[in-house]
Simulated assay, not measured.
Amino acid sequence: MCRRPVVIASICRAIFGLVLIALAACSSAVVDSVTQPVPRASAGSVPGHVYLLRGLVGEVFSLGFYDLAERIRERGVYASVHSMYAPGNLAGEIIAKHRQAPAPIVLIGHSSGADVAIAIAERLRAANIPVAIMFGFDPTPIAGRIPDNVELFINLYQKTNLIGGGEARAASGFRGRIVNVDLRERREIIHITLDKSPVIHVLVADKIGAILRARVQASPVRSRREAPVAYVTPLTMRYVVPPNVPIVLWDSAMRGTLGADETLEAFASRMDATAWAIASVNNVRLEDPPPPGTSLLVPRSIYATAR
């Protein structure tokens, strides 16, 4: 009986989603810039397995995950698409495979599929199995908290979305990194087209490929800077992507101190970062910087693009 509110909420989201399908059919589903082709690698050349979980009505929603899986395979990583309806069976399959041949695990879920991916991560935690990377594609507000066996969770969501909009939050004892990428201002994307965006596909596949290749090399491939950097852990970070800039998926952050009479633009330049992102991450305005000496989070990408 205790699960009845969850089931009712899921049914309501499904009905509302069908309305969105009708609306989306009247216009272009996704307006994305042209992406460059990536050299194809043989799937399995990079250790790891990516499991993609479709949403509540997987036969209609989340079909873009098949294209995303192919993008990931092009980076040399195994990827498979699954239903969200038998999470226990899939969790058991992942556990058995990992115990037989340990390799990095990546979980990706769309809508309610993202909720289920988090539940699977919790099952893996109970089996003492780590999860290298997770991506949420607009999970719902009732999604569970991110368990402490997850190293990195990047959440692509739209906070104002009525059937998604779930912000990723850490469970007790979490030691990894959570990055909430709020796409509410990107009007070319809605809940039922987020999984189909070619731009998002490239960003996610590149991030996965770069991180898993870096794990093979036993040390991250630093982007831009070679000097050691003190990255913030545990980390929970959120930023809203403006409508007129490229979408960026940062995976880490460091701290910097705002200097005397220093604007956020000057601070960003000194930190080799992006001013709008620093403002958003720290919930301040570019035109109204905080007092000198304020410690600010600076979003970074530890891993270079795997192209």
Results as ranks from 00 to 15, higher is better:
233 T>G: 02
170 A>E: 06
122 E>V: 13
168 A>N: 07
220 P>K: 06
182 D>L: 03
138 D>K: 05
218 A>Y: 03
40 R>N: 07
298 V>D: 03
176 G>T: 06
19 V>P: 00
42 S>E: 09
140 T>H: 11
217 Q>D: 10
79 A>P: 11
249 L>D: 12
290 P>D: 10
235 L>A: 01
144 G>W: 08
240 V>T: 14
302 I>V: 13
203 L>Y: 14
99 R>C: 02
295 S>L: 14
155 N>F: 00
119 A>V: 01
73 R>T: 13
185 E>R: 10
72 I>S: 04
123 R>Q: 11
122 E>C: 09
296 L>K: 08
130 P>M: 02
122 E>A: 13
131 V>K: 06
166 G>H: 07
2 C>K: 13
125 R>P: 01
250 W>F: 15
63 L>C: 02
11 I>G: 01
270 R>D: 12
130 P>K: 05
176 G>M: 02
104 P>I: 04
22 A>N: 06
214 A>G: 02
246 P>N: 09
199 V>W: 04
57 V>R: 01
58 G>E: 14
302 I>D: 13
89 N>V: 09
155 N>H: 00
157 Y>T: 00
88 G>I: 01
282 N>Y: 14
286 L>A: 07
10 S>W: 09
244 N>G: 02
18 L>A: 11
86 A>I: 09
44 G>P: 08
146 I>V: 15
203 L>A: 15
169 R>P: 00
294 T>F: 11
160 T>S: 13
289 P>F: 02
99 R>E: 03
52 L>M: 03
300 R>C: 11
124 L>W: 08
21 I>P: 00
276 W>E: 01
183 L>H: 06
3 R>A: 12
226 E>V: 05
39 P>T: 10
149 N>Y: 01
273 A>K: 02
46 V>C: 07
182 D>I: 03
69 A>E: 05
154 I>M: 04
302 I>M: 15
250 W>I: 12
74 E>H: 15
204 V>F: 04
296 L>S: 10
51 Y>A: 07
271 M>C: 03
50 V>Q: 06
238 R>T: 14
301 S>Q: 15
74 E>Q: 15
184 R>N: 03
257 T>I: 15
8 I>E: 11
70 E>T: 14
141 P>D: 05
66 Y>K: 12
182 D>F: 03
21 I>C: 12
12 C>T: 09
131 V>Q: 09
269 S>M: 04
85 Y>V: 12
99 R>Y: 06
